[in-house]
Amino acid sequence: MNPLPIVIRIPAQADYLDIVRAALYAIASKVGFSYEAIEDMKVAVTEACTNAIRHAYEERGGWIELSFLWDNHELRITIKDDGRGKEEIPTQHMTRSVLHQSPIADVTVGGLGIFLMEALMDEVHVRSENGTEVVLMKRMSRNEEMV
């Protein structure tokens, strides 16, 4: 598959999440991810999009842009919005070590989405500057079975 990104822009509404999941399935199966890996990615991407829908725009509406990039046995999925975001997300990079230094009881209500994304993906990066950008990465294991 060509290492150019596939970009999808959807309204920030839950009604459009099935389009995102269908596109993710098509892309991930085309490059050879297993059914289980694709299902994990669908959950993580849905969570990131749901966060954008719930927190970025409130009542005024907006857009979510998704970019899928396959390169060197890794699928990089970027979810961007230009909304205001959640107050709890730091303005710097959020890394796995920052999140896992705190007990799960200290996570704010609705803050488990990042933990879920990290459990399902190989890497998760969140940046909140002029909107929010979530980058999810999944590497192909050597023993992936084609869908």
Results as ranks from 00 to 15, higher is better:
D40A: 04
P103Y: 13
Q101S: 14
E58A: 13
P90M: 12
S29E: 05
H93E: 12
M94F: 15
I27F: 01
A52C: 12
E88W: 15
D122L: 04
K86V: 09
A12N: 05
V20K: 06
R84G: 12
L24M: 08
L116G: 09
G32L: 03
S29D: 05
H93D: 13
V109H: 14
R96K: 15
M41E: 10
K30P: 01
Q92H: 12
G85A: 07
R60A: 13
M94G: 04
A56E: 14
L66E: 02
L17R: 06
E87A: 15
A28W: 02
E129S: 05
A119P: 03
A14K: 10
D18L: 09
V7R: 09
Y35R: 09
L69D: 00
D81V: 03
I79S: 04
G62V: 11
I8Y: 03
D106G: 09
G61W: 11
Q13G: 11
S102I: 15
N72D: 14
V45I: 06
H100L: 15
I10Y: 02
E74Q: 04
W70H: 05
T50N: 07
V20C: 02
I27P: 00
E88D: 10
N51L: 06
G110T: 14
V31L: 01
Q101E: 15
I79W: 00
F33C: 05
H93I: 08
V20T: 10
I64A: 02
S102W: 10
G61L: 12
Y25F: 09
V126M: 06
A119C: 10
V98E: 11
V45N: 00
Q92K: 14
T50F: 00
I64S: 00
N130C: 00
D106I: 02
G62R: 07
I79R: 03
L66R: 02
R54P: 00
N130K: 05
S34M: 04
P5R: 05
V109R: 14
R9P: 05
I64T: 04
E118K: 08
V45Y: 01
R60M: 04
E123H: 06
E129C: 07
E39W: 00
T95D: 13
W63V: 11
M117Y: 08
E88P: 01
M121C: 11
V107N: 04
H73D: 08
G113L: 12
Y35K: 11
I53W: 02
R96A: 13
G32S: 02
L116A: 14
D106F: 13
E87Y: 04
I89C: 01
I19A: 02
Q13R: 15
V98D: 14
P103V: 10
V109L: 15
S67Q: 09
W70I: 00
I89M: 11
K42P: 03
G113E: 07
D71T: 02
I79M: 00
V107G: 03
G85F: 01
R9M: 11
A22M: 14
L24E: 03
A119D: 13
I10K: 03
A44F: 06
D81E: 09
G32E: 03
H125V: 12
F115K: 13
G113C: 10
G61N: 09
A52Y: 02
R127T: 03
E58W: 00
R54L: 15
A26G: 11
K30L: 06
T95G: 07
A12V: 05
Y35H: 10
D82P: 01
T91H: 06
I6Y: 08
